[in-house]
Nucleic acid binder design. Structure first.
Ligand SMILES: [Zn+2]
Ligand SMILES: [Zn+2]
Ligand SMILES: [Zn+2]
Ligand SMILES: [Zn+2]
Lengths: 140, 140
DNA sequence: CCTATTGTTGAGAATGAGTCTCATGGATAT
DNA sequence: ATATCCATGAGACTCATTCTCAACAATAGG
């Protein structure tokens, strides 16, 4: 699967312009499974001598989140983190409150229960945040 | 149960000083089941002609969260909300993305599954955030 | 009580992530 | 090519929250 086409096609479909900057930001986020914030992504681009402004990084992230190419993760420390959603199934996160390590987990039972809960209260579920905080194996 | 003693005792136990301002903030938060942000709590105090500075509201909230007299709720809109934890059992939240309505739910099965997940990954669980976003009965 | 000690408060400055503005540039269509 | 109009960059701006520091007030000891 040529990843290059994914972004271009999404943008074209949404009547947005395909630009080098948007491709660069997307490439950068795709390049790792890390959960990085906007500043880290921006600095990584600078490191590679790719010139994209901070504003454009933020604006591109907004687009990528909107069209679900990336996921936004908020661990409650005042800045949002992002991960690519390429070939990944839905998952939630375990976060170590000591070292900051982020693990991913998948639990179908919980996902189903969430649907039941929403139904019970008459909600039409859109998305959810489910994060377990504690000490990881090393830190405890 | 005299609520007045609760805060005084917690503060004394933690070698913190019992002040009128801290009591006033705690009283204000206790007075409703709403999920309010710091500014709303501050304004409510002013409305009642109680003089507590914004800084003290923030600082007191920090103490109250630390000693679990109140819970912090982050619905991802850039400001934290708070609810008192007086005679309430643990619950999580359903949030309407259209009108902002916040409902509470309790689900023992999910709580147990969370323990299992943490155990599976070697985490010592401390707390969790579980929020279901979507449209409420009225908005959908 | 009086005093010393030390944590707390208030006012406003500072911080910092994220957003906005606007002139310039580049993608796309004809 | 040319026109159209969205995207970009630089920096100003916003807004919740935190910090600073001088004045103050809660406890402890005498
Ligand atoms: Zn999930
Ligand atoms: Zn993840
Ligand atoms: Zn829960
Ligand atoms: Zn609640």
């Amino acid at each position: 699967m040529e990843q290059h086409h994914t972004l271009a096609h999404v943008l074209r479909q949404e009547q947005l312009r395909y630009t080098n900057q948007r491709q660069a930001v997307w490439d950068e986020i795709k390049s790792t499974d890390a959960h990085r914030d906007a500043e880290e992504i921006y600095m990584a681009l600078r490191q590679d001598n790719i010139s994209v402004s901070r504003a454009t990084v933020y604006r591109t992230i907004e687009v990528l989140v909107k069209y679900k190419l990336i996921n936004k993760i908020d661990i409650g420390d005042g800045r949002s983190r992002y991960e690519h959603a390429n070939n990944t199934e839905h998952h939630d996160h375990l976060i170590c409150t000591n070292c900051g390590k982020i693990l991913e987990f998948v639990d179908e039972s919980v996902e189903e229960l969430q649907c039941d809960i929403a139904k019970k209260y008459g909600f039409k579920l859109d998305y959810h945040i489910h994060q377990l905080f504690g000490l990881c194996k090393k830190c405890k």
